[in-house]
Amino acid sequence: MAELLPNLITLGVVLAILRCLGVFSKASNLRRLPLPPGPRSEFLIGNVRHLPAGSPWLQYAAWRKEFGDIIHLKVPGNHLVILNSYKAAHDLLDLSPKYIDRHQLAIADQLMGWNRMTANSAYGDAWKLHRKLMRPTMNKAAVERHALILERGMRACLLQLLHSPEGFQEHIRLFTGKIIVMFTYGLKIDSTKDPLIAVPEAQFARVISLILPGQTPLVDVFPSLKHIPSWFPGATFKRNARIWKKELTDMVTQPFNRVKADIAAGAAVSSFTSKCLEDNPQADDEIIWSAGSLYIAGADTTHAVLSIFFLAMATHPDVQRRAQAEIDSVVNADTLPTFEDRVNLPYIECLLKELQRWLPVVPLAFPHRLTEDDFYEGNAHLVAATCFIYRIFV
């Protein structure tokens, strides 16, 4: 028995090295096809030193000229595959169910609990229920039902912009925050200092700093480290993760509980959460996290798009004049455009699409996890279980 432990340790080390070297993936590659091209990997550490620390999508897009539409990077225990074209992303992510799962990061997802959010959730029953809850709100009719809330919010924001244009960032932060909080929870807020705006911003900024390739904590490179005790020297990440997990849970639970209290008091405003509670009274946990997913994703991204719009109009005054002229030709000076006016505003439609192309809010999409080996266009082998697929929106 005394000799068994050293033997097991030796076996574990050997298996870990073989996995890093890709021996197991070669055994499953019956067609003997190569992995997609990419920067030359180094012994044991693979492409760790090639991962860009900041704005990785720019480096990935630049590599397209050298390696093509699909790029492969190897890090210990994992393969990263970057899709650099619409065709590759459409063929793999849109058409194949093999790519439906999500990669689970050790710190963000498993220790901090972000895998309870819809976008981070592994494919399974919880993810399906989230999608079922959200589907009725993600269509044109549902958005049009909230048109009055949008119009009131826009008018208030426009008045603030007219009276204090120097504070435009705060005004649009409040506008987008009020809209998403009202839509998700039916709760009113009057300041960007309100925890319903400030807390999600802080949570989102924290998790982004942990998940970008090139900024990956050591525990995500070697996930087995997540099992070390929190009191162990160097396990600060685990102690922090416990605190951050509670903060994340409180962030989505507190507004949910406020909605339940308002429903009990007969004072609830119609919202995504109140409607879900009415239709699915036994699904509290799924409602909490699906509502939280809408809540944390909506305000930050919308605020970013509006900020990009201000930048575009300030740097392209000719575009601003043409857009304003089209609006003036369709609606009166004292009214705002409606959804019915959209068909008569083709230039505005193109402007909105260009905003998302020019400076994408999420240039590096959430990674997809491949669930079984795949082969693309007859010349590239994609490895299941350890293959995480990123889509570049540049």
Rank of each mutant, 00 (worst) to 15 (best):
P233K: 05
W231Q: 02
P229I: 03
L162A: 10
I172V: 14
A198K: 05
D190T: 00
K193D: 14
S209T: 09
H171G: 08
F183Q: 09
L174K: 07
P200I: 13
T184K: 00
F232V: 12
S164Y: 08
M154S: 09
V219E: 13
P195E: 11
I172K: 05
H171T: 12
I228A: 14
H163M: 02
L187R: 10
W231R: 02
Q215M: 15
I208H: 05
F168K: 09
H227A: 13
Q169M: 07
I228P: 05
I189Q: 02
I208V: 06
A205K: 04
G153T: 09
D194S: 11
L158T: 06
M154E: 03
K178C: 14
K193G: 08
G153N: 12
F204S: 08
I228D: 03
S230T: 06
T216G: 01
F232K: 06
D190Q: 00
Q169L: 09
Q160A: 14
G214M: 08
L196T: 11
A202M: 13
L218V: 14
L218E: 09
L174T: 13
Y185N: 05
A198M: 02
G186E: 04
L212C: 04
I172H: 08
S224H: 03
S230P: 01
F183V: 14
V207Y: 01
F232I: 10
I211G: 11
P200K: 08
K178T: 14
L174C: 13
I179E: 05
I211Q: 09
T192Y: 00
P195S: 07
S191H: 05
P165V: 11
T184S: 06
P195V: 07
K178S: 15
Q169E: 09
H171N: 08
T216V: 04
V207W: 01
E166V: 11
S230M: 04
W231V: 03
L162C: 03
G177R: 02
F175C: 12
F222H: 12
K193A: 12
P195G: 07
I180M: 14
Q169C: 04
G186M: 03
R206H: 15
G167D: 14
R206A: 15
K226V: 10
V221N: 06
S164N: 15
L174V: 12
T216Q: 06
G177N: 03
F204Q: 04
F168P: 04
P200F: 06
A156L: 11
S230F: 01
S224T: 11
L162Q: 09
L162D: 04
G167I: 03
D190K: 00
A198P: 00
E170I: 02
I172E: 10
F232T: 13
L225T: 10
P223E: 06
P229N: 06
F232M: 13
I208Y: 02
E170K: 06
F168I: 10
E170Q: 11
S191K: 02
P165G: 13
F175Q: 06
D190F: 00
F183M: 13
G167T: 12
P195D: 09
P233C: 04
Q160L: 08
T192K: 00
A156M: 08
I189D: 05
R173V: 01
L212Q: 14
S191T: 12
C157T: 06
P213F: 05
R155N: 13
L174F: 05
L174R: 10
K226H: 10
F168H: 15
H163C: 03
S209E: 15
I180V: 15
H171R: 07
T192L: 00
F204C: 02
I228F: 14
I208C: 07
H171C: 07
Q203W: 04
D220R: 02
